[in-house]
């Protein structure tokens, strides 16, 4: 009968136990998960069962990690994610969360750009840790992504994006994610990509401050190849701060639009 061991198909005899398969396939494994639960050694296996065998403290190799990471993904998605190259402009609340989501999806390459360092106030919504305060966001985020999936390729650019450097920085990407803070910078990047990089969609964000209804944040198409996530109007200003829940909702709208574009489906359905 066939079972899946670390998401690879393995042929085992009828009546095989979890322990027998552990000894045969990965004898150094000391964590054994059978169909999602810790397994007693004598548990009997059935056709189609899933077994995860892990050696505590040892990282799985590339193929193994890939299989394990994408075990919950819809079949066929991962191959397309792996071929994807995505530019992320700005690594604040939006960009850092988009990058984390795309790394968890197994997107092949991320081009990450920011010129800031991590500040204490960033920790209210951005994907950094207290001990990273003062570090460059590019490097701190790359480190965090590597702790999730070390096999995502990252290109780090610690600089300010301009109309002059954007086309070469993002050359070859399938989608550019606009994740800046200032409205002027958002407009500059969108304008540059849509003018200078024909055919490359931009997934931007506008209107995500405060604690208004989460359902107010939607994905719109403003022009061909320009998708804008947000409620359009909730501007960051004194009295209306940027906070983890709504910024996270917007960032994941952006990440989902990227996934849909990589899969060749319209982000709006």
């Amino acid at each position: 009968m066939k079972i899946r061991v670390n998401e690879q198909e393995v042929e085992v005899g009828e009546g095989a136990t979890v322990e027998e398969v552990r000894r045969r396939v990965k004898p150094d494994a000391d964590v054994v998960i059978h169909n999602g639960f810790p397994a007693p050694a004598g548990a009997l296996l059935r056709e189609g069962d899933g077994l995860v065998l892990i050696r505590r403290g040892k990282h799985p190799d590339r193929q193994e990690l890939e299989s394990l990471l994408v075990a919950r993904h819809t079949p066929g998605v991962h191959e397309k994610m792996k071929q994807g190259k995505i530019g992320v402009a700005g690594l604040g609340g939006l960009g850092s969360a988009v990058a984390v989501a795309l790394a968890r999806m197994g997107v092949g390459r991320l081009v990450l750009t920011d010129f800031d360092v991590v500040e204490p106030s960033n920790l209210n919504r951005q994907q950094y840790f207290l001990e990273q305060v003062g570090r460059l966001k590019t490097e701190a985020l790359a480190e965090n992504l590597a702790r999730i999936n070390p096999f995502v390729g990252v290109s780090l650019h610690n600089l300010e994006i301009t109309p002059q450097n954007a086309p070469s920085l993002f050359a070859g990407v399938h989608v550019v994610v606009e994740a800046f803070d200032r409205a002027e910078a958002k407009a500059m990047l969108i304008d540059t990509v849509l003018r200078e990089m024909p055919g490359v969609p931009v997934v931007a964000a506008s209107g995500l401050a405060g604690f208004g209804p989460a359902d107010g944040i939607v994905t719109r198409r403003v022009a061909d190849n320009l998708y804008v996530v947000g409620d359009e109007v909730s501007e960051a200003r004194p009295g209306e701060g940027l906070m983890a829940p709504r910024v996270g909702v917007a960032a994941h709208h952006q990440a989902n639009a990227v996934v849909r574009l990589l899969l060749g489906v319209d982000p709006l359905g």
Binding site: A183, A187, A204, A205, S206, G207, A209, V228, A236
Partner: peptide, 10 residues
């Protein structure tokens, strides 16, 4: 003609 004004926040 569509006119869209992005607002700050990220």
């Amino acid at each position: 003609v569509a006119i869209f004004p992005p607002v700050s926040g990220g």
